[in-house]
Structure formats: C-alpha cells, structure tokens
C-alpha cells in the first residue's frame, strides 16, 4: 500500500484504542461471538432491540486495530437503524470491501464506515475489517429465524 497512514487514519485509530462502544450493556436481546481462528481475534457483540429498531449495541473482546475499530464504527452506524436498514448497510459494507460496490452515492449510507474502503488494498487485513460485520449479519439472521 502506498500510504499506510491512509489506512491507519484518525477515525480508525481513535475507535480502536479508545472506543466508547467497548463495554457491556445492562441487558441485551442478542449476543454473539465472532472469532477468527487464524489470528485469535474474538469479538462479542451485544444488541438491544426496541421493536424493530436497534436501540443499543456494545462490544467486548480483543483484536487488532482494524477489527476493533471496524466493530466500534459499525456500532455507531447501526445504532438507531431498523433491522432492515442494518441489513442493507452490512451488505453495502461487505460489497465495498470486496470492491463490488463502488458507487459513491450508495456508499454514503455507510457514514464513517467508509473509512475502511482502502482495506481492500491490504488483502491480509480484509478478514479483520469484516469480522464484526459478519458476526452482526449472523445475529440478524438468527433474529429473523426467531431464535434467541
């Protein structure tokens, strides 16, 4: 990558080292663990719903700056969204990382998560950026299937 500082930018660094989303919720409706056995990253995501709306989210666990910040930014973006909106945003994020979605207007709905766009230039780190999003995708799938 030509300029690594582009990847390790202010948003990513702040979210990875000092995230206000890294905590436990007093209660949650869904909780799931995302695990990357190759690198040992483990991220637990808690979700609290209010009807169809994601009222609150938090995460705990450990991992690299990319996986930690990606989780924290995801929480910022998804909080307050409906389940349907959240699913669309997750699909767009994964599409962006895979370079399948490049349309700037479409990527706008990702808000700060657009900071991870250049991670596709670091193939070894793509899995770090996607860990939380895949975990959240699984949570929403379970929610749809009516499990708890």
């Amino acid at each position: 990558m030509d300029n690594l500082e582009e990847m390790y930018n202010e948003i990513i660094m702040e979210h990875s080292m000092n995230s206000y989303n890294k905590k436990k919720l007093s209660s949650h409706d869904f909780c799931d663990l995302g695990h990357n056995p190759n690198c040992g990253d483990e991220i637990e995501i808690e979700v609290k719903l209010n009807g169809d709306v994601i009222e609150d989210m938090a995460f705990s666990g450990h991992g690299c700056a990319i996986s930690q910040s990606s989780t924290s930014v995801m929480i910022d973006v998804l909080k307050g969204k409906t389940v349907k909106e959240a699913k669309e945003i997750i699909a767009t994020f994964i599409g962006m990382i895979k370079r399948e979605i490049t349309d700037e207007e479409e990527l706008e709905k990702l808000e700060d998560a657009i900071a991870f766009k250049n991670i596709s230039n670091m193939p070894a780190r793509v899995k770090c950026a996607l860990l939380a999003w895949h975990t959240m995708e699984d949570i929403l799938k379970k929610l749809e299937e009516g499990e708890k």
Binding site: M1, L4, C39, G40, C64, I66, M122
Partner: peptide, 26 residues
C-alpha cells in the same frame, strides 16, 4: 498495547516480512 497484526502490516509496508499470530502454538 499494539496488536501484532497491526505491527506486521506496518512492517510489511517497510519491506520487512515477519509473522504475526499464534504460530500454530495456541
């Protein structure tokens, strides 16, 4: 305070190849 994968990515950018992870010895 810095995760080894971040260090390895930065080292890679400087042309230094190191391994990061659990080295098949969890």
């Amino acid at each position: 305070g810095v995760h080894p994968h971040d260090v390895a990515s930065i080292l890679d950018n400087e042309g230094v190849c190191v391994r990061s992870g659990n080295h098949c010895a969890q």
